[in-house]
């Protein structure tokens, strides 16, 4: 593909834009890191904190863990379970819904997907309260499963949107070929279409996992007794007023996200979709 992307001048331009984008994204991260690792006199206790602190300490982490390690662990596990249920359920439901949508005319599927997004237009707070009442009756209140089901409201439209796009981009003949080659409807769905949709499915899983991981509104209302990590950090930095410990927590929160992104990223960059189908 000879395009303007390969023009050296344009490449320099894109490079500069990318650097600016990275800086904007990383500055908050940098601030978080120095608050977590530098001595307080150079960060939160200073009137004019230096951009590059010179004295470092692990006392924030030690303090955070020695005081709250069991709460932290519980919150971590709760977040992990919730996010994994959200991701798995979103992908399992989303794939089948998307397959149906991909068989419809573009106009029809676009209409249905925009209707799905209605649920995300309503503020979470508005739905969280009636949900909490129902969950109390159903015994789902304060449980990981209940929280995951509520978060699904926000996540599922996104997942369906993403996977539908992937399925629509698959060459139609592959499914027809599978049927002719002897695959039943379900077989062709799971042995041919599902593997081909992997990049979209992993991307959707990753995104819904991360959306759940730092979801706040549903979590604070539906699971306040045994909180998830974002809620715990919030309680620490505001109610307990210890921003130092909270920074240490916050940094820990990002580590699983980085790990899962690295693990799944190789599945997401699938450019093999149309190979073997010439013309």
């Amino acid at each position: 593909m000879v395009s303007e992307y390969n023009n050296p001048r344009n490449r320099k331009f894109y490079f500069i834009i990318a650097i600016i984008f990275v800086i904007v994204t990383l500055i908050p991260m940098y601030v978080l890191i120095i608050i977590a690792f530098a001595v307080p006199s150079q960060t939160v206790a200073a009137y004019y904190p230096p951009l590059f602190p010179s004295q470092f300490t692990l006392s924030n982490f030690i303090g955070a863990f020695s005081g709250y390690s069991s709460i932290l662990q519980a919150a971590f596990i709760k977040s992990l379970i919730t996010a994994t249920i959200v991701g798995a359920l979103a992908v399992a439901l989303g794939f089948h819904a998307s397959y149906g949508l991909s068989k419809m005319s573009n106009r029809m599927s676009a209409l249905i997907i925009s209707v799905l997004f209605f649920s995300t237009m309503i503020p979470s707070l508005t739905i969280a309260i009636p949900i909490s009442v129902s969950f109390l009756k159903l015994g789902l209140y304060d449980s990981a499963l209940g929280l995951a089901l509520a978060q699904e409201l926000v996540v599922l439209p996104m997942t369906v949107f993403m996977i539908t796009g992937t399925l629509q981009s698959l060459p139609k003949q592959l499914e027809l070929q599978a049927r002719v080659d002897g695959a039943g409807f379900m077989q062709s769905l799971y042995t041919v279409i599902l593997p081909l949709a992997k990049p979209g499915i992993f991307a959707a899983f990753l995104l819904s996992w991360m959306m759940s991981w730092d979801e706040f509104t549903f979590a604070v209302i539906l699971s306040p007794v045994h909180p998830t990590l974002p809620i715990l950090i919030y309680i620490d930095s505001t109610a307990r007023g210890n921003i130092l410990f909270a920074s240490a927590f916050a940094l820990l929160v990002t580590i699983p996200v980085i790990i899962i992104t690295l693990v799944l990223s190789k599945f997401i960059k699938g450019n093999y979709l149309t190979s073997g189908v010439t013309g």
Binding site: Q173, L174, Q177, V180, A183, T274, G276, V277
Partner: peptide, 18 residues
């Protein structure tokens, strides 16, 4: 189609890329 025992070759071959 899966029960007709026919074979088909499409114009673009439709090889399973995975």
């Amino acid at each position: 189609p899966n029960r007709r025992n026919l074979a088909m070759v499409f114009q673009n071959y439709a090889l399973y890329p995975n």
